[in-house]
């Protein structure tokens, strides 16, 4: 099944609404005037060559980088759409460990390497007030199972895990609190092809089962083909083309996208 066959029904309110997002590093453009809406349950892929501004954009969305201009509106439920850039730091950090999740390319950036797998998964639960060891451990076991890590590895440290296992552990650690929006930066980067395929499969299942909304950055078009409903193509910090994934990949309009797609086909 292709991911693109989504969102045919009645319009719903977006969960994330981005307007005019701009970030410069001194004189250099990080990303410029980026805007899009993300709907509940939707996966947005961001592709583009190295240096095109994908990570900059993602980090601005997730509150890791402060943009120079623009708005990042997030649906806070009862509080409605709020500009996350205008939230106080405690509010933003709270959001980051409840409703949001961030999966780093390098699992070392997203895991605590000196803490057991169970402790890594349990941390977000404890951060939001879980104080029952048995319940925390049961959740950790459940989540290790969901990302296909054997239960008897629960007390091992991630340093003893393969790259693919570390990445799956990072995903479990992020999803345990049931976030609504997940940011991922090259989640399959640096992994062997067969390991990538398994991880992608797993991610696709989790996104579907949990009804997650996600923004996923990658330079690998196979990843977006499998995961993303919609696509944004970036070049020099700007979005040059956007649309349903299959549409963009099969019938690219912008010259740069055509190059991008054809170069992948040659690989």
């Amino acid at each position: 099944m292709r991911a693109g066959a989504f969102r045919a029904e009645a319009p719903v309110a977006p969960i994330l609404s981005v307007r005019g997002l701009t970030k410069r590093y001194g004189g250099r453009v990080g990303c410029e005037d980026v805007g899009f809406d993300l709907y509940p349950g939707e996966v947005m892929g961001i592709v583009g060559e190295s240096g095109s501004g994908k990570s900059t954009l993602l980090n601005c969305l997730a509150g890791h980088l402060r943009p120079d201009a623009g708005e990042v509106l997030f649906d806070l439920g009862k509080d409605g759409m709020r500009d996350t850039l205008a939230l106080s730091e405690p509010e933003r950090r709270r959001l980051a460990r409840t409703d949001w999740a961030f999966v780093h390319q390098n699992p070392r950036d997203g895991l605590r390497m000196t803490v057991s797998a169970g402790g890594n998964v349990g941390e977000r639960l404890m951060a939001v007030g879980a104080r029952n060891y048995g319940a925390i451990r049961a959740s950790a076991l459940d989540w290790l199972g969901r990302v296909e890590i054997a239960a008897d590895r629960i007390d091992d440290r991630p340093a003893a895990f393969s790259g693919g296992m570390q990445q799956r552990l990072q995903i479990a650690r992020n999803l345990v609190t049931g976030p609504r929006l997940v940011f991922m930066d090259e989640p399959t980067g640096g992994l062997d092809v067969s390991v990538q395929a398994r991880l992608l499969d797993l991610l696709r299942g989790l996104v579907r089962d949990m009804g997650l909304s996600a923004v996923i950055v990658t330079h690998d078009l196979a990843v977006v083909r499998l995961l993303a409903h919609r696509l944004m193509v970036m070049k020099g910090g700007r979005v040059v083309e956007t649309g349903l994934t299959d549409q963009v990949l099969d019938d690219p309009q912008h010259g740069y996208t055509q190059l991008l797609v054809s170069s992948v086909l040659q690989v």
Partner: peptide, 29 residues
């Protein structure tokens, strides 16, 4: 569990003490 001083200060400021329980969790595990 968190060697970075800038980070521990922020954790105190924002009352983010989940990590303290991670240490106790590790003990029990």
């Amino acid at each position: 569990l968190e060697p970075r001083e800038t980070e521990t200060r922020r954790m105190h400021a924002l009352e983010e003490y989940g990590l303290m329980h991670v240490k106790l969790y590790e003990d029990i595990a």
